[in-house]
Design a protein around this nucleic acid. Structure first.
Length: 280
DNA sequence: ATGATGTCCTGGGCGC
DNA sequence: TGCGCCCAGGACATCA
């Protein structure tokens, strides 16, 4: 379940491996992912040079010289594996796309659950395309409490759901929303429109803090996620509430236990004592 | 228009 | 050991 820190880690790994390099051959084994891999992808990318790799929300943006931008989303279970020129590539189940670079390295996109996407932007400027045209701010860039407060003031959904909405802020998923709300000491059930400007500021600080620490740790490996070299992230060891139902609250003086509830048929984890639901 | 619910998909974990 | 069941969840479709 890659969220911003995991996607950032993969994007950085990809950038180091293929920026400036030429794609010599493209193999697509299976096209029917969440969004079909477009026919013609092979032709359009063969012989092209990779310009730059970026990240926007949970998407990896691969800019190509002389072609529109390649958009990659890892879905839930997607992985990118990079094989150095001297490494031998042994195909495994669910290897859907293989980019063979001119220097002999290979980039493999594997996705068992097929929730991922790999396509080419329709417009010259990918940012004008959906979903980017509708996407909220990058939480680590210029995300302001004023902006969040303004957006939440019209929302009648719990704050947990609002933060998962990519139009409010980009890149957050279930894990980091739970963690950030714990750190901001805000109950996930609080109505979005009930939050004060100060509370929005707390949320922003908590989100930034948890994302920055997770990126430093190389992301969280719960099930599927791996770095591009196959190694693991280790931020899962630093999670305070996510998947810790029944365990002691991380605040030592608290003494309460982490609770799991369901919101919009998704699990939320929180500490009933530290995350107080006054003002609902 | 907004929010709630259902759908896609596979592997892993669980109970019996 | 093996079978069936349920769960994980990001984005999007569909419904009220």
């Amino acid at each position: 379940m890659p969220e911003l820190p995991e996607v950032e880690t993969v994007a950085k790994g990809l950038a180091g491996a293929i920026s400036g390099k030429v794609i010599e051959h493209v193999t697509v084994n299976r096209r029917d992912l969440r969004r079909a891999i477009p026919d013609g992808l092979e032709k359009r990318l063969t012989g092209k040079r990779v310009k730059e790799i970026k990240r926007r929300g949970k998407y990896i943006i691969i800019e190509i010289r002389g072609e529109n931008t390649v958009i990659l989303h890892l879905g839930m279970s997607g992985r990118i594996r990079i094989y150095a020129p001297d490494e031998s590539y042994e195909p495994v189940k669910h290897d859907h796309v293989i980019l063979s670079m001119r220097d002999g390295s290979k980039i493999v996109f594997n996705d068992p659950r097929r929730f991922g996407m790999l396509y080419i932007s329709e417009s010259k400027d990918w940012q004008k395309d959906l979903p980017f045209s509708q996407m909220g701010p990058e939480p680590l860039d210029n995300w302001s409490a004023r902006d969040l407060f303004q957006k939440l003031s019209q929302k009648k959904v719990p704050i947990k759901n609002a933060l998962l909405d990519q139009g409010i802020v980009a890149g957050l998923g279930n894990i980091y929303v739970c963690e950030a709300l714990f750190e901001a000491r805000i109950d996930p059930r609080r109505l979005s429109s009930s939050l004060s400007l100060e509370e929005c500021d707390s949320i922003i600080k908590a989100v930034k803090s948890v994302l920055e620490r997770a990126i430093k740790a190389g992301g969280s490996t719960l099930k599927d996620y791996r770095h591009v070299d196959g190694s693991l992230g280790y931020f899962q060891n630093s999670l305070s509430v996510y998947d810790r139902e029944g365990q002691d609250c991380a605040n030592k003086q608290c003494g309460d236990k982490i609770r799991r509830i369901t919101q919009s048929s998704r699990s939320s984890f929180y500490c009933p004592s530290c995350q107080n639901a006054h003002n609902n």
